[in-house]
Amino acid sequence: MTASPAEKLVAMANQIATFFDTQPGDPAEGIAKHINEFWEPRMREGLLAHAATTTADLRPSVIAALPHIRRARQTA
């Protein structure tokens, strides 16, 4: 049942969105800030790479957050 790495990142991002979608203010900002604070660069790049191929499985607020997700400063 273990999901693929990209599927996991998508699930995690969508799950973060379930919280920020219910908060006052712009959820995209909260989502991006949370991801920038807690996700290691590989994970952020993994999500961005996946989103470059498809965003069909991402919640709208995650899609809105994508431009605010910081790119890795160096590759791993």
Binding site: F38, W39, E40, P41, R42, M43, R73
Partner: peptide
Amino acid sequence: AEPGLRIPN
């Protein structure tokens, strides 16, 4: 300056 990996990650 970048966060690292958590155990599940």
